[in-house]
Design a protein around this nucleic acid. Structure first.
Lengths: 117, 117
DNA sequence: TTTACATTTGGTTGTTTTACCAAATAAGCA
DNA sequence: TGCTTATTTGGTAAAACAACCAAATGTAAA
């Protein structure tokens, strides 16, 4: 792997990492419905304003959102809306995992191993 | 946001976080081409075997991959192949960011501000 | 049944992330 | 102008992460 490839994969990982936090992912999902100001987002997040601001700034620096100040408020919106197209697939991962757990449990029952635990 | 929604968003963020590391993202991309054993992946990664193993185990715990031991080797594969479908969109984010930088620089030139920096 | 190989686990350390508080900044309004 | 509201920035402590080394495990082959 050469330097260019390495830089590319790092950049991509960085975008995914930005979305890899519950608060930030939630924010991105909210913004999929259109731009919101910080205060609107904050209404539904139980965290300090400064924390919220830092999450937004991280999303911005990762290139996921852009901000625009209008009057007293700052509005954020998704820079590239496709960013949430893959949620169905992420959910499929979760479902596959859940199914694995169910299968495991059912095997246990079949084998009668629950009783001995 | 209720508990169930909270748990769901945390689970989804966890999958994204798992992919949000260059080594792990690279591994996932490799596995998109079919299963590989640890040693095959390791060939192209400059890190301790134990580090590699831990990255794989994190991907597994996030539900992104599954492993199977065959003989002396352990083979990993993507559990839900769609997981990489969104790379084009991630790349679009990077490109949008790059474009912003280019625009910024061009404005600077137009305004002749480079000289005064 | 030793020996060698492939991989994982446990422990440690340095780095990064996250959250909070307090203080700074920026804009509109009295 | 001075006040209030909206948001960001700086500092700090606690938690999580990533990498390494050494040691353990499981499997195959000698």
């Amino acid at each position: 792997m050469n330097d260019r490839e390495k830089a590319l994969i790092e950049a991509k990982a960085n975008v995914l990492k930005a979305l890899g936090h519950p608060t930030r992912l939630w924010m991105a999902e909210q913004l999929a419905g259109g731009e919101k100001c910080v205060c609107e987002l904050a209404e539904n997040i139980d965290a300090d304003f400064s924390t919220i601001s830092k999450h937004l700034s991280l999303l911005k620096q990762a290139g996921v959102v852009i901000d625009e100040k209008r009057g007293k408020q700052v509005y954020y919106r998704l820079k590239v809306p496709c960013i949430l197209n893959f949620m169905p697939c992420i959910e499929a991962v979760l479902q596959a995992t859940a199914q694995t757990h169910i299968d495991l449990m059912e095997h246990k029952r079949v084998a009668g191993q629950i009783d001995v635990l």
